Simulated scan of single mutants.
Amino acid sequence: MTKGEETRQFIIEKAAPIFNTKGIAATSMSDIMEATKLSKGSMYVHFENKNVLACAAVDHNMKVLSSKLETALREAKGAKEQLYAYIEFFSNPINPPVSGGCPLLNFGTEADDTNPAVKEKVNTAIKRGQQLLTSIIEKGIADNEFASDWNAAEFATALFAMLEGGHLMSRMSGNNDNMKTIEKTLKKIISEKLI
């Protein structure tokens, strides 16, 4: 990495949790300058405007989330254990895997009507999440771990939506009680599909 690339990456890493916590609209370049201790001129050498930096921060947050999730799934053996690991990975919204909460929920809620570039990034990440869950279930069916009549894509959508909804509910209430109920319900559905 060149010095310029290192500085650019440093800015993204410092900006990512700020954007994820405060939101894109509420985050100012001054917030980023304070976190990085860089001048305005240095900031604009690497990012032509706040929106370009915000997009890079969204990508960074998604990459961090994805990397941590992949690690959690890698340790699970079999499709059932992978689904359980996926659920457990998202089961503590009060202490989330990415600083500031779920970037899909945070950026998606903010960007749905205001930022087409970020909206597309979030939508792509959602589709990837659903595809990952679908492929885990399909592999479980192929390996005779799950019943062959289970609609993998439908359950993947429901699981994904329930976890995101549970994240919102838990963050709003300040506790994980709702997510615990969702976790229990999802695991029950999965266990009923075991052969």
Rank of each mutant, 00 (worst) to 15 (best):
L105Y: 07
A153G: 03
L163D: 00
A117D: 12
M169G: 04
S99H: 09
M169Q: 11
G129Q: 03
A142D: 12
S148R: 11
N92L: 09
K63I: 07
E70T: 12
M33P: 00
T181C: 05
M172C: 08
S42K: 04
L194M: 15
C55D: 10
K40I: 03
L83K: 05
L186W: 00
R171H: 03
Q82F: 03
M43N: 02
N51H: 12
H46K: 07
Q131S: 14
F107T: 01
L105F: 09
P103E: 10
G101W: 02
I195E: 10
E138W: 04
A111I: 02
F10D: 08
L186Y: 01
F47S: 00
N123L: 09
I195W: 03
R74Q: 13
N20M: 04
H46N: 14
S91I: 05
P116W: 08
M62G: 01
S91P: 04
I24G: 04
G23F: 06
N61A: 15
E120G: 01
A16K: 00
Q82V: 05
N20L: 04
L168R: 07
S99E: 15
A26S: 13
M62P: 01
S173P: 00
S148P: 02
E88I: 02
A76L: 08
F146P: 00
E48S: 13
P96F: 06
T114N: 14
V58P: 01
I11S: 02
S42E: 12
G4S: 14
N95Q: 12
N115F: 09
K119D: 09
I195T: 13
N92I: 08
L159W: 00
L104D: 02
K3L: 12
E75Y: 05
V118Y: 01
K180R: 13
Y84V: 14
L186H: 01
Y44F: 15
